[in-house]
Structure formats: C-alpha cells, structure tokens
Nucleic acid binder design. Structure first.
Lengths: 233, 233
DNA sequence: GGATATTAGTGTCGCGAGGACACTATATGA
DNA sequence: TCATATAGTGTCCTCGCGACACTAATATCC
C-alpha cells in the first residue's frame, strides 16, 4: 500500500492524453452533434467525435479548440470542459484518457469541413446516433444531459443563436434542448424577468406573420453559477 | 491548420497524467481539507494536495483512491471527479495535467497518517490555507465552490457524518459548508420533506440538553441529478 | 383589395416552496 | 429544584411558476 520508490511516468508506461469535443447545434428543429469519420485505426472509417492528442506546448482548452478547427474546420467562441474519461480499456489499442469538452454554435454561422485525420464530417441528431468509436456514445449522452441541466440556469442558448434574436427563436432553442413544448407567456415572463435581454428597437419579418422584436443578450448582466469553467477565446 | 501526419503521443513529448484529491471534513465547526507535505521536488517540503501519477493499469478513479490511501492512509466511500487542470506551466518542471477529485469524510472515522511521498499530513481550515504547491490553492477554491453548489441539491452532507445522525448535526454541517446560520424549523421541514431520512427510533444524549432523535440516510430514496458521476467503492 | 393564414405579443389565478418568526419539551449539572 | 442547554414544533406571507385564451400585425392567396 505504501511504496518508497516514486512512480515516474516519464520512465514507465503511462496514459496518453486526448481531448474530444461535443459540438452541439440546432438545425431543422433538431439538436445535433458534430461527428467526423476517422481516417486512421483504431475504429478506422467509424464515426467519432472530433478530437486528438494533446501536445506538450498547449493547454487542454487550446488542444480542444485546435482539434475542432483541424478536423472539422469549426472555430468556436467558447468551450466548456465536461468530464475526463479514464477507463483502462476505453481505447482497445492503447491506454488513453480523454478530456471531453462541449461547445455550442449557431448552425448558420458556418459549415464544417473535414480535415486532419477526418475523412468526412456531418451533423447528427443527438437522439439518432450511429455506432460511434470508443466510448463516444456514452460521452455524447453525458454531454446532452449536462446541456439540459445547464440550460436550466445558464444562458447557454444564446450561443446557439445569432447576436440579434427574437424571443420565439430563443424559446424554440429551449424547446429543442428539453424535448418538449413550453408556454409562450410563461417563457417570456421568465426570460424578460432575468433582465439579460436588451431590445434593439428593430424588428424582423420572418416570411409571413407579424414581425418579431429583436433583442440582444447582455453578457455583463449575467454571471455563471459554477458547474464548469467557461473559456472565452 | 490542417496537418496530414498524425500526432503520436507515444513518440513525441506529451503530458503526464496525475490525480489530486481534495478531501473535506468538518471538525471543530470548521470545514477542513487534507494536506500533505511533499517529500520530493518540485515544491519539496511544501504543503500540497494528496495525489500522484496515474499508472497504466488503473482507471483515474482507482488512481485517486490509491493515492489518497498511500499518502494519507485514508480510505473513502466515494470520490467524485471535479475538473481537469491542464495549463502548460502548472508544474514548473514538467508538463503534467491533473485530474482533480473531491471526497468527504467523517473526521471521527479515522485519522490520516503520512505515507508514500508525503512526510507529513494535516487537516487545514479551507479559509486559512498555507502556501500550496502547484496550482493547488486554486483547485481547493474550485472544489469548495463546487461543494457549496452541490450541497444545494444533493445529500452530500451525509458523507461527513456517521451513519446514525441527528438533525442538529446535519444542520450544523450545512451551516459550515455555506458559512451562515440556518433557521432550525425551516431546515427540518425541508429535510424531512425530502423523505430521505428514516428515524431509527433511538435517541442520543449529547452531554447536557434534551436527547436528540437519531435518523439514518435512505440512499435508495435519492437519485443524483447530474453534474458529476459519483463512484461507489 | 379583402379574406385568410401565420406568427408576435399580452394578463390572471392558483399552488407550492421557502423565508421570517417564538415558544414548549426534556435532559444535565450545580 | 433551579438554572442551563439543546431538541422539537406551526403559521403567515411572498414569490416563482404552471395553466390558460385572446388580440395585433404582417404576408399570401384569391
């Protein structure tokens, strides 16, 4: 139980460190995650989360952002660390631990493009996942749960929308995240009561129907309550 | 931005993986954390959190439990992963990322004992920390915040108490965690309303004063709401 | 241009959770 | 037996939030 000789990971076998990113978006009324197709073994040609090994000269956060950029061509405004998965056998070939991050993006902002070790990339409905490499399905489920949980108290939904937004758009995002309809009046009362939205004075006509007033998120009116460190780039 | 040659951590410089454990207890009306004195550089003789490198054949959870046992002689019922700290320069000598865990223990249950790479061990008031090695002070602050947050919705306090407990003891734990007094009647109404406490029928006389009824925590009545995976050993 | 369809926007009631508040009950020890 | 110390108990009020239906403004279709 007690050992006198210190364990030195630089002269003994030890885990490698990877990061994986769960990138959520909303499109066509669905909550979707970004998947890439692996070019290399293990799990060659399988769908997986974008991610890769951490380099010696970058922080974990930087590694997550870099891998997302390299493999999927996506730059995000922020990333939040989710959990670190460290089961011994989660990679069949080697001992690898993975620090998972999650991020949200407005789907219209840009379209992903495969690169790096990825031969393909796609958005996938979070409730209809294909077979995924490693323990990535479990990681996505965990991320979805955290997203729902976090959406209860933090204005995460604003990351999924353009800067100027309508209350109906915002409500729609919450409905997709939670998977159920919300009452319009209660939703507006609650959101406006938070005093984190500022009317721009403008309005936007979305096809037919009455034009909706536009609002902007006041980041300075809000402080995160914990449960994760949000990193701004 | 895109590179064709995959980065192989087994043939390139890469981070080592450590675990650190923040073990909380309550004693003399204070919230305290367990610290060890380091035997080896870097930060030789400095106070630090118990922890060490992860071995190739053990999960992160197992590594955390092992290090706590080796360095401080403490076995815990459960550990919860807190966060993974991965700044490039958090260890001045080498690139090391640290997966932090936190745990709670009844102070009376056992007394810690230095071992492994630790030459000394002590409980320290969480609000009066000495200089700590690495970024461990930041880690402790983060853990304390998470503990307060988690105590809002999860019955963490039961881990800090013996199996049979009184409502006054339980209230005291919450008061210490939150650093403020609570109303006795409101506290009891709320806790009993959760229906996670079962009266044992016994009572305990604590010196002077009326004897208090004893209760036992009904684990099966409660399910964790997320925000962390709790591991039972 | 008028009818129709479509989306935006608004107020009230009731319930339950939880904070503020003071006294009685039962034991020990002087 | 009296003083002290801790355990235990009930009411009122406020606030958050869920349930619930109609009017307002615009586009489209004839």
């Amino acid at each position: 139980m007690t050992e006198r000789v210190p364990y030195d990971p630089f002269s003994n076998p030890h885990p490698a460190v990877a990061v994986d990113v769960i990138l959520f978006t909303i499109a066509d009324g669905e909550l979707r995650v970004l998947l890439i197709r692996r070019e290399l073994p293990p799990f060659e040609d399988a769908w997986a989360l974008p991610g890769g090994f951490v380099r010696a000269d970058e922080s974990l956060d930087e590694a997550a952002a870099r891998e997302l950029d390299e493999e999927a061509g996506v730059s995000v405004r922020w990333l939040e660390q989710l959990y670190t998965f460290g089961a011994v056998d989660r990679d069949p070939a080697r001992r690898v631990i993975s620090v998972a991050y999650f991020a949200l993006i407005d789907a219209l902002e840009l379209s992903p493009r495969a690169g790096g070790d990825a031969t393909d990339v796609r958005w996938c409905n979070v409730r209809r996942l294909p077979k995924l490499a490693f323990d990535h399905k479990q990681i996505v489920r965990y991320a979805h749960q955290r997203l729902r949980y976090k959406a209860e108290y933090a204005p995460v939904a604003f990351q999924l929308l353009p800067k100027d937004l309508t209350l109906s758009e915002l409500q729609h995002v919450y409905e997709v995240i939670h998977g159920k309809a919300l009452d319009k009046r209660n939703f507006r009362r609650k959101v406006l009561g938070l005093e984190i939205l500022e009317p721009t004075g403008e309005s936007r006509s979305e096809g037919r129907g009455r034009p909706a007033a536009l609002y902007r998120f006041r980041r300075d009116r809000f402080r995160d309550l914990g449960g994760g460190v949000v990193l701004e780039f």
